[in-house]
Each structure stands twice: as structure tokens, then as C-alpha cells.
């Protein structure tokens, strides 16, 4: 099993519903977020190209954050989901430094927090909160090893990319372009 997400940059309108859904689902403290939306615009008026990406932890296959954690608080769950066990984390910040995507933050309570792919929902067979609220249905979640899963299907017919693959982390969020 390998959980992954595919996000359609052509469908996303940048409404940030995914961000609020995550904040409420996961009790993310005010002023913090586990996912965020980036808009990249290139060109000169009127010839413009726009890419809107909902970003979050890439649940990398080769996660530097898991590697550098001195206590094992950062670890892989089934399906490659990367999570942090709060009461094992000492808050050293090494994992924050190690993530090329700035996907982690230091929770006001001291431990490090990040996207969990809504593990608690996924375990019950539900989709992550962000995926379930997206009004344009531009996010696909599922098991990459299952050819019938939403994510495998989405990747079959479209061109896609990952972010900063040269960082070598093998990110598992695929952006349809």
C-alpha cells in the first residue's frame, strides 16, 4: 500500500477550503496551517499562465524528516503516511530544518505538527478532510498500488509533476499539469 494524492492545478481555483477544512478537522491552532495554497503566475499581460497548487506534506517515500528525528517521534505509518507522535517529540526542530517544503511547524504546545493525510479518517475508509470538501473536486486520494484507486486513475491520463524532485525525497503528492 502506498497512499498518495493527485491534485489538479488546472481545476483548483485557490478558494482555500482545503485549508479551513483541515484547520477545523484537526484543531490546528490559529495562525498555523497544515496545508496552504500557492499561486504562481508567469508572463506579461495579457499572455499569462497561472498555476494554483494546494500544498501540504508530501509524505515522502524517502523522508529526511523521519531520518533526522533523534527520538523516532517522526515515523512512517502504514501506507507510507508520515506522522509525528507528540509525546515522543522533543521539539528539537531538526525535522523542520530537514523538510524542503516547509511542511512542518512548531505547535504552540511544543511538539512538531504537520499534515497526517487525516490518518484518523483514512483508517475508517474516509477521504482526508481537504479532499472531501474541495468544491472543484480537484484532489484525488488513494492507494497508488491499486490501479483502480482515484489517485491511480487520475495519474493515468494526465501529465503530472512533483515538487522539487531534485531534493531526492520522493514526494507523494502529484500535481496534474
Amino acid at each position: 500500500m502506498r497512499y498518495a494524492m493527485a491534485i489538479d492545478t488546472k481545476k483548483c481555483v485557490g478558494c482555500s477550503d482545503c485549508v479551513v477544512a483541515c484547520q477545523t478537522e484537526n484543531n490546528v491552532p490559529h495562525g498555523y496551517c497544515r496545508d496552504w495554497v500557492v499561486e504562481v503566475m508567469d508572463g506579461t499581460y495579457p499572455n499569462l499562465e497561472l498555476e494554483i497548487r494546494s500544498e501540504r506534506c508530501n509524505h515522502c517515500d524517502n523522508s529526511p524528516c523521519v531520518r533526522c528525528c533523534p527520538t523516532g517521534a517522526s515515523h512512517y505509518e502504514a501506507g507510507g503516511i508520515v506522522t509525528v507522535t507528540a509525546n515522543e517529540c522533543i521539539g528539537c526542530g531538526a525535522c523542520i530544518e530537514s523538510c524542503p517544503y516547509d511542511a512542518r511547524y512548531s505547535h504552540p504546545d511544543g511538539y512538531v505538527d504537520k499534515c497526517t493525510f487525516c490518518l484518523h479518517r483514512v483508517e475508517k475508509g474516509e477521504k482526508p478532510a481537504c479532499v472531501s470538501v474541495c468544491p472543484t473536486n480537484c484532489m484525488y486520494f488513494g492507494d497508488l498500488e491499486d490501479p483502480d484507486s482515484d489517485v491511480s486513475q487520475a495519474l493515468q491520463n494526465r501529465k503530472y509533476k512533483t515538487l522539487a524532485p531534485e531534493a531526492g525525497t520522493k514526494p507523494q503528492i502529484y500535481y496534474l499539469i
Binding site: 481555483v13 478558494c15 482555500s16 479551513v20 484547520q23 490559529h30 495562525g31 496551517c33
Partner: peptide, 18 residues
Amino acid sequence: APMHTFSRTANNPNLTDL
């Protein structure tokens, strides 16, 4: 903006975060 509904959500803490 897609994150706000007219002017009425301007006082909503979650949406003003956005």
C-alpha cells in the same frame, strides 16, 4: 475572493486567516 462571501465573512477568524 473565493475565500470570502461578500463582505459578511470579513470578521470570521478562520477566513481572515486566509
